[in-house]
Design a protein around this nucleic acid. Structure first.
Lengths: 243, 243
DNA sequence: CATGGGGCAATTGTATGCAACCCACAGCGA
DNA sequence: TCGCTGTGGGTTGCATACAATTGCCCCATG
């Protein structure tokens, strides 16, 4: 078999998933900025694949709302504005609130333990001695924090038992500014955020849907503040030159 | 130019949009039933196109949640169950409620007039002398009613000024059972439904977001009853044979 | 008879060539 | 000068050939 060359080199050709994941990451993390053009030929050349899988990856990214496809004129990373950002959080508040409410009476004890464990790991991360590096977007500490945060929320989405919740939120929560907002929180903001997580775990343990929903709504609004602040910084503007 | 051969024959080859629209209609209206297999080759042969556009259409349908793609094993029309149907309405109530609330303070007078006009046309349709044909799913009267109903709702989605509302609802509202539920309403049910539309128009005219949201929620729950009844009839079951 | 491996048919995944399309811009005529 | 037209560069859209993957059937073997 060829699935496990175990290590280096591996000149295996890229599948559409590889390309999709890579482009998605680059867009969400901000390496590819809004307005950046993504011609099929250009992307294919850059990654060393043919147009076909690139094309499919771009179409999927369009379905995710991350790129705009202009027939015969090339794709580009979709820009978005303040109004849209607010609109996104309006919907997240409602959908994640609903997810938390449902999860409160559906999560299994093991799943709640898992949530608690994630929460504790985040606390530990925030308690490690502060170096300036902690504030840099690309640093490992931030990356882990973001990663754990996503795992926490995704577990709740799954725990809601409504498959459409996951689909909707994958379109609303994994976007450039929303992602970057995590490190727009100041130190205090991150502690508040973790307190919300703690409260959520508590509401699940006591199977209290009202508390779960209210807490989640507060939590999302809290995240909104960070995203709006981040937006105000102007870090969202068009990419290099464009045209 | 060749864009307007004006009439018949027109052996222009099918684009992926043609194929997408056609498959989508067939699935939503129930001609292609859940579980039905949709091999790329098979679809291409049936419609007289090559695999490439068919493939892209199928991928888009998967993003819409209408088909399931199984790598190397072919696509099929996605089946869904009672739990999912309930979950869909849970989300619709919240999202359409939000849309109506926002629309109440954003719709322009012309847009409200348009809504009123649609509502009146629906009343007229329901008032035409009853023949049995009116109850048949495929009849022109039912088709018009469904069409007008979709226009009415879509106008509100757009009027909400939140582009994500449209995207979310296109995944939640244009599904087989949801669509078919329209004619699962009895005669009285249709009148109640139109009364809700009338109330919505009123709430928009008076710019009353609370009334708009409450009315929309009631309206969607009303639709849910019809969908659940339709589901209970068992009209959702697997297609011919499958396997 | 149960079980595991080889190979085969069905099907999608990828590469590539050519056709169709969109737009910008130059050139022409009023 | 202004508007119209057509032509060419750039880019996607479609068709087709070939490669890769999956699942299954069948047979050898314990």
């Amino acid at each position: 078999m060829r699935t496990a060359p175990a290590s280096l080199a591996e000149a295996r050709r890229l599948t559409k998933e590889d390309i999709y994941e890579r482009l998605r990451r680059e867009i969400v993390e901000g390496e590819l900025r809004p307005g950046q053009r993504l011609g099929e030929e250009w992307v294919a050349g850059r990654l060393g694949a043919s147009r076909t899988p690139v094309r499919e990856a771009l179409h999927k990214l369009e379905a995710d709302g991350l790129v705009v496809l202009r027939p015969h004129r090339g794709a580009l990373v979709r820009p978005f504005d303040l109004d849209e950002l607010i609109g996104i959080f309006d919907l997240r508040v409602r959908i994640e609130g609903y997810a938390a409410r449902r999860a409160a009476t559906r999560l299994l004890p093991e799943q709640i333990d898992e949530l608690a464990s994630i929460q504790q790991r985040q606390v530990k991360l925030l308690n490690t001695p502060v170096t300036d590096k902690h504030e840099e977007p690309g640093s490992d500490a931030i990356r882990s924090l973001v990663e754990l945060n996503q795992r926490f929320h995704r577990l709740i989405h799954i725990g809601s038992g409504n498959r459409h919740v996951e689909v909707m939120l994958s379109r609303l929560a994994y976007l450039p500014l929303v992602y970057q907002a995590i490190y727009a929180h100041g130190r205090q903001g991150r502690w508040v955020s973790l307190y919300h997580h703690e409260q959520l775990v508590h509401s699940f343990r006591t199977e209290d849907p009202e508390l779960a929903e209210a807490t989640m709504r507060t939590h999302i609004y809290h995240g909104r503040q960070a995203a709006l602040a981040r937006f105000a910084e102007g870090d969202h503007q068009e990419g290099p030159g464009s045209d």
